[in-house]
Design a protein around this nucleic acid. Structure first.
Lengths: 211, 211
DNA sequence: TCGTGTGAACGAATTCACAGCG
DNA sequence: CGCTGTGAATTCGTTCACACGA
């Protein structure tokens, strides 16, 4: 009922449901059925029920799920009942875009440190933070109690940055650099790779038969 | 051998192999085994062979695959034997980061138009382009022969933008807005959602047992 | 009756294991 | 031999279908 082995995609769907629940709660609905959630989330009702059932029985038969309570439970399950401290490595354009992106702090994630190795960037003030030298990562990460790292450096530096992050105690990394990173077991890594996304679109357009 | 139904993840692995092949070719290697590719790509040798076998027999038994030839074939398969024209919708920070990102044009993708609905942004010169009014999307997209759209607008505008892109003849969309987009069949959609990635990291950190 | 929760059926994707060719 | 190419076996995720409780 609680934790066996939840698939990566199931977890991502929970994020989705959470957003749908937010919308329903805002709209004043007090209960939703798996069908309601499914429709707004673009999945099947059975999928919704199965996903939720991994963590317990939150619904009432014949009625559906209590919106507010389910929202709380899913928030808890995803580990969003608290705030997370994030370190951003790479003070380039993409780093800036992420840093100044609002729906970030709104969701419980605080950027607590920014790093770069470019002397021109180090010392710059970004909002309430100052861009730190990558060399002082270990010290800064520990004093700021950073738990997650986001890599927005060029590909060549990414592995080195990942190694440093891990050495500083970070156990979860989101990598935007177009490189396959090697991380030891126990470290969670997610990749966002623009090139791969575009190439998969190119493949789809090239191999579509009809239309 | 050629086209049945290739899974999305298999296509993404092809992108990966392509990058590994680039590295091998640069290093002067002339043949690689599935084991070589697997090691550098973080997958199993059997997976590599299976993925490639969907498109033909490129290897020699007892020897491996000819690097240069395989690289050409995979490039062709992914639809990267030509350049693609991309339209960027949203001239904010993230849009700018993507626009000025190099490894974009390097991979065969050219941003051919940028749109926004903010009067302050419309008319701005970005490199060789001028930010266009979203209202003129249909005309601009057609004269620029744009084939793919990238959405980097706030969530509230994203669906409307997607509809317009599709009306302008675009059949492939990469969506960075944190919203579930509805698109008709025949339109390829990929989502990149920062919030979902972070939440999946939060889940992983919350539910890790060992350490 | 309605919608959940869930075992069972199904299907997709990965891995295994080996025949076959250089 | 060594390594590919591929059916067979397996694992994993999704969907079905129905018993059960509100």
């Amino acid at each position: 009922m609680c934790p066996a082995k939840i698939s990566e995609s199931a977890v991502r769907r929970l994020s989705l449901y959470l957003r749908v629940l937010d919308a329903f709660e805002l709209a004043g609905k007090t209960t939703v059925s798996s069908g309601d959630l499914a429709e707004r989330g673009g999945v099947t009702p059975a999928q919704v029920r199965k996903d939720l059932s991994h963590f317990g029985s939150f619904g009432k038969r014949g009625l559906g799920y209590p919106v507010s309570e389910l929202r709380e439970r899913v928030t808890e399950i995803l580990g969003l009942g608290r705030r997370w401290r994030v370190g951003l490595v790479g003070a380039g354009k993409l780093g800036a875009a992420l840093f100044f992106y609002d729906g970030f702090r709104g969701q419980g994630f605080d950027v607590a440190a920014i790093f770069d190795n470019d002397p021109d960037k180090i010392g710059q003030r970004w909002g309430r933070l100052v861009v730190e030298d990558i060399e002082s990562m270990d010290r800064v990460m520990r004093t700021s109690q950073v738990e997650m790292g986001i890599i927005v450096t060029p590909a060549v530096s990414a592995q080195q940055v990942a190694d440093r992050l891990i050495a500083s105690g970070v156990e979860a990394i989101l990598n935007f650099a177009p490189t396959r990173l090697q991380v030891p077991p126990g470290i969670t890594l997610r990749n966002v790779n623009l090139e791969i996304e575009l190439e998969s679109l190119a493949f789809a357009l090239t191999h579509e038969n009809g239309a």
